[in-house]
Design a protein around this nucleic acid. Sequence first.
RNA 1: GAGCCCGUAGCUCAGCCGGUAGAGCACUUGACUUUUAAUCAAGGGGUCGCGGGUUCGAAUCCCGCCGGGCUCACCA
Length: 514
Amino acid sequence: MLPDFAGDPATRYNGPAQDWQDMTGEDDNQFRAARLDKLGQLKALGVDPYPYAFARSAEAGVLEERYADLAPDSVTADRVAVAGRVRAMRNGGMFIDLHDSSGKIQIFSDKKLLSEQQLAVVRLLDLGDIIGVEGIVRRTRRGELTVNATEVAVLAKALLPLPEKYHGLADVETRYRQRYLDLIVNEDSRAVLRQRSRIIASIRRRLVERGFLEVETPMLQAIPGGAAAKPFITHHNALDIDLYLRISPELFLKRLLVGGLSDKLFEINRNFRNEGISPRHNPEFTLLELYQAYVDYEAMMEMTEHLVTEAALTAGSTTRIVYGGKAIELAAPWRRAPMAALVLEHTGIDFLAIDSAAVARAAARRLGIELADTADWGHALYAVFNTRVESLLIEPIHVTGFPREISPLTKTDRNDPRLTERFESFINGWEIANAYSELNDPQEQLVRFQAQMRERELGDEDAQRLDADFVTALEHGMPPAGGLGIGIDRLVMLLTDSPSIRDVIAFPTLRPKG
RNA sequence: GAGCCCGUAGCUCAGCCGGUAGAGCACUUGACUUUUAAUCAAGGGGUCGCGGGUUCGAAUCCCGCCGGGCUCACCA
């Protein structure tokens, strides 16, 4: 059923109406009420609790380094201005732990240095407030680097309390729904998302170094192509047409290759697949996709190893990682093995010796694998690989020899017409990369699309759709090329030892709370 | 979509062979100018996810629903 886009514009986009009229109403919450009272007192003192800016001169982490050699119980003449969130107060506000994104600095509220008005402000502070402090750097007798406050400014009064200061926030649902709380109190969560950013920066840097051009292609597509997956449907009002959120950027990146925008291009961006959610699947996920003209898929193996090992070195110090207690060595070169050989190794079935779809189906079914009666040789082989082999591929491996039937955008294997020049790279049993010698023969591409359309008609909703405009683009000539896709979220999971894809996505998809 | 598990104060958790709710942190008030999970004293705070059932009595047992987690299916 299509969503109904008619109706009241005010309620069109956000689902059930929010109780927006009551949001600033009565205080049902003792913590908020107490803080609102303090907010009023601050204003009565002439303090703006939400000022525009603060002239910060130093971050906590920088001070920690700069004064590493400052002896305990010594005072400098250095005046600094720091800012951050109040995370702890001791002795009635005399000592404050101020956290910024670089670390922690202690604030000392000295009666002798602060005015009566300033001391009153300090008394009105709460845990969670964002403040700015100017003062003198010293190290206490107990060795804590400290700023002796001469000025204390409220930069943002917090009206709600933070989670428990010692145990942090453990409830996974709250961690995902209110990620900001998770980030404030859980250092590990901050670390993972920072690592994500560094890993993506590493990939982008390596590609740019190698002469790749970063591009952007449509998220909204009239024909969702480039992958086998169920798309999200949306609607454009002015054109009055349904559009799909892309499941892959592939067909558009290839159009740019046809156009010669660059012989080396890449995109790092979101894709959307309307499928199940699991610890390894989020409906929107980030994919690196790159194309390099005049090379084949062998070059993509080297590229995969390069990007993954460089990312690992960015996230850690070696190519040896530990995921879920398992040590995995990512150093190149990775093992390479054909799919059929792996299936033979793990099941004893030699699909390459099977020459009919019926025999292939029977072989797969003997292993307990369910297959439609229309399943062909390639689907049977892949089903066996998928269910019996994939999860065993812990150490990095490039699996080659993908069947033609499941690889409609890939050049046929130059030595075996049943196969294609495609590989997927697996680490920890997960597909991390998918790469081809890209099919650039427009007539064969059309035949492949037509085979996909027949599969759709036989009931395979995920079979790829014919994109006639893409075939036309190929008719204008696309250079031979290698193409590669790497799942960024899973790569970040591996490199940060994160058990769930939700841990590496700041705002994972959740059911809206009723 | 199926199975299993979970939902108690703002947070972290205890209580669960049925007798009507507790701790620590946080909060409020007070003490404290060299603390750092500060400490000490006093106090406030709960439709025990929601609804129904069984029962003299339900946080506790049963059913349904909502939300979440894991596994499986889906993701060729």
